[in-house]
């Protein structure tokens, strides 16, 4: 897969940052606006698909640090489970931060309001953990599937068949 023209690459350079910022916004405002960890993570993972289409695999594969993103995935899942385990004094997944003051502990007015970012307790933490996990997971799926195509292209000249 070769890189596309300079117009596409320039547009990609400009809009990739907007995609990243929008994805992070969706993740950290998950308890206020429609969206959340999964959706924001999918938006950020779209950024990597964008880079892969615009620049081609020859520049994307050295750019993409797969070990870093598998760390993202592992750390995201462990943070999610750990946040659930901290509430184990009452029950698993107990929201021990909501309404206590402090980190994510503000109370919100009942009914329609304009939103308090520092609210909702562990929900915001879990949004971030799941967002980090989904960023790692989806971009790793993309990366490995693209490397699978390259694996086919490299061995394409050989004889293929079921008896190989």
């Amino acid at each position: 897969m070769y890189s596309l023209s300079v117009i596409v690459r320039t547009i990609c350079d400009v809009f990739a940052w907007f995609l990243a910022v929008f994805g992070v916004y969706v993740i950290i405002h998950g308890h206020l606006t429609p969206g959340g960890g999964f959706q924001g993570g999918a938006v950020v993972a779209t950024l990597f698909a964008f880079l892969l289409v615009a620049y081609g695999g020859k520049k994307f594969i050295p750019f993409y640090k797969s070990s870093l993103f598998s760390w993202f995935e592992t750390v995201g899942l462990l943070l999610f489970i750990g946040t659930g385990l901290v509430g184990l004094g009452t029950t698993f997944f107990y929201n021990f931060l909501a309404g206590q003051g402090g980190l994510f502990g503000s109370t919100v007015p009942i009914g329609p309001n304009s939103g308090v970012l520092n609210s909702s307790g562990t929900i915001a933490l879990m949004n971030m953990a799941v967002g980090v996990e989904v960023i790692g997971g989806l971009s790793l799926i993309l990366y490995y599937m693209f490397k699978g195509i390259r694996l086919y292209e490299e061995s394409g000249s050989e004889e293929t068949g079921h008896d190989r």
């Binding site: 599937m145 293929t160 079921h162």
Partner: peptide, 27 residues
Amino acid sequence: TLTAIVIGLATSALMLSLIMMLYKHYG
């Protein structure tokens, strides 16, 4: 539905990977 969408995405990724491997194996 949010849960079901993410699980559908995971199964789609696995399904397409297996299809790619089948194509590589059988042509």
